[in-house]
Write a protein that binds this DNA or RNA. Sequence first.
DNA 1: GCGTAGAGTGGGAGCGCTCCCATACGGTGG
DNA 2: CCACCGTATGGGAGCGCTCCCACTCTACGC
Lengths: 343, 343
Amino acid sequence: MTAARVRSGGRPTLEEVAARAGVGRGTASRVINGSPRVSAHTREAVEAAVAELGYVPNRAARALAGNRTDAIALVVPESESRFFAEPYFSDIVRGVGAALADTEMQLLLTLVGSDRERRRLAQYLTAHRVDGVLLVSVHADDPLPDLLEQLGMPAVMNGRRSADESLSSVDSDNFEGARSAVEHLASRGRRSIATITGRLDVYASQSRLDGYRQAVQDAGLEPDERLIAPADFSEEGGARAMRDLLARRPDVDAVFAASDVMAAGARQVLREAGRRIPDDVALIGFDDSAVARHMDPALTSVRQPIEEMGRTMTRVLLDMISGESADRAQIVLPTELVVRDSS
Amino acid sequence: MTAARVRSGGRPTLEEVAARAGVGRGTASRVINGSPRVSAHTREAVEAAVAELGYVPNRAARALAGNRTDAIALVVPESESRFFAEPYFSDIVRGVGAALADTEMQLLLTLVGSDRERRRLAQYLTAHRVDGVLLVSVHADDPLPDLLEQLGMPAVMNGRRSADESLSSVDSDNFEGARSAVEHLASRGRRSIATITGRLDVYASQSRLDGYRQAVQDAGLEPDERLIAPADFSEEGGARAMRDLLARRPDVDAVFAASDVMAAGARQVLREAGRRIPDDVALIGFDDSAVARHMDPALTSVRQPIEEMGRTMTRVLLDMISGESADRAQIVLPTELVVRDSS
DNA sequence: GCGTAGAGTGGGAGCGCTCCCATACGGTGG
DNA sequence: CCACCGTATGGGAGCGCTCCCACTCTACGC
């Protein structure tokens, strides 16, 4: 029970650690922050004091003095219910968490729904409450990315707003994912391959559609705009699109849906129309979610490396924050076609 | 240097706001924190200055001076993959986010996997980096709740470790959910009703099993331990349990599984055994997840108000932090049986 | 011998806020 | 008229840290 330890019940401070180690506050700070300009002997003494007192640095004081927060924000648009659907959200979070595991960084989860919250978020960032921002599910007309760029706040988005995204981004290869799915359908002898797209104001949807078109062309099939049905990522939208397709091209023998949920909607309609899957119509989804695995028949789907996207985004962001890489990164991760019974 | 260092000449401070409003720092602080001891005239002047300068308080300084952080942590055991499965995680987060929406509180997401991270977490809390903690998916032998209690850190858990939980908790009515499911089966004339349980070291599993037993008794059916098959919440576990049940009691005509995922495993086995659902065997799950909605036939399931649990936990925690309610709360929210085609 | 460089160190000066004591001032009662 | 009180206000004293300047001591060169 040294005098220093008695200090009114609170946690030990750097000052106390320094006193116990018989060094100055500055030196203790150097040891704790891994500065090389400390003698081995001193270092040991401080480390011993830290261990004995159970010292943990006070974050607030550090943030105030050092003008940094050691925290990054994961900004999630709550309105985007698709993002919350399995497996996206949890996998991204997992990846982010994994990349953060052996850093001192904290993860702030920020749900933005209303415009009011969006404005508040801008304040957060303006007030410099975080060192960097991870953005997911950003729409083309979202003002946030530009705001961040303006503020000079390090930021990485999941997905892109367009082909020439100005912010750093980590995306999956939507084009190739779609292309490979359609190629797979063609290779199994399907001739009238349709696609159900997501909202086309989302760049990923556009890319998937482009991939579809490419594969159709590569397979020497005849392109037909009647085989392209736009939807909105919802189950009901997928069902509606499938109905349209059946009406316009009753000879359709394969469908590539840009999400598993839309595929589920399409499946329902196909069932009701008496078309067997995959005998009459083959079906492929996108996301490789639980829905795909549990569908009957099990749905062939394009898997995105979501957790890895989360990990990669985080790593890129940490590099930006530490100043190791100032330029923006544009990373595209490969997808994988998981073939099941529906194709 | 780093883009993150965008200050110094940047954000206005409280001092500047005070100067502009022609008042002292103390007074400006009072206005910003809503103290009543300020004249209306002064208040207006300060508020005008805040608006003009776009002042946002510096969190770190506040935390340091006020010895609080205005942040709560959501602690998620990463190992518990079940928690990450849809819809649990996203719904809890949604609820927490909603309850936090019009507070100044930040949400820190903390994934704890390894023991190493668990120890680090204890340090976090010890260093008082958050004002309170939300715990989800806690196991009976988890040291964290006790640690929190010892530290006097406000904490609320999702679920309970036992019937007489010492921490504040918010749970769903597992007993009644299970009971109503089994009652429903009995009311449809099922006589040999089996159950597939979750891991019995989880209190929720125990409660669901108790609910099953109660309903069996209430319906005047003959209890039979051979109708009770323990599993582990996994699909494979559900399948294995179903196989056991079929072997032990081939006459089984209904199964209540303590999770949708286990029900999916059971369904697969029933199919392979040539049992029709629901004609030969009725099936009910628990969670009302996407798996249930998309199963074929669509799965009857017990819905838990997950988002509301998240909201309630957060509200209870905020009350504890503000000191409004010092005693622990034990809240149990009702479940709902969602009847679909499988029963 | 002297100067000089550099490594190692101590501690002052804040960071921007909250807390709280001191002060100013107008009323009130005797 | 004075003592007294309550309300509104100003500003000092930290909170625990990082940054950085100044200082001490060597070791080395000439």
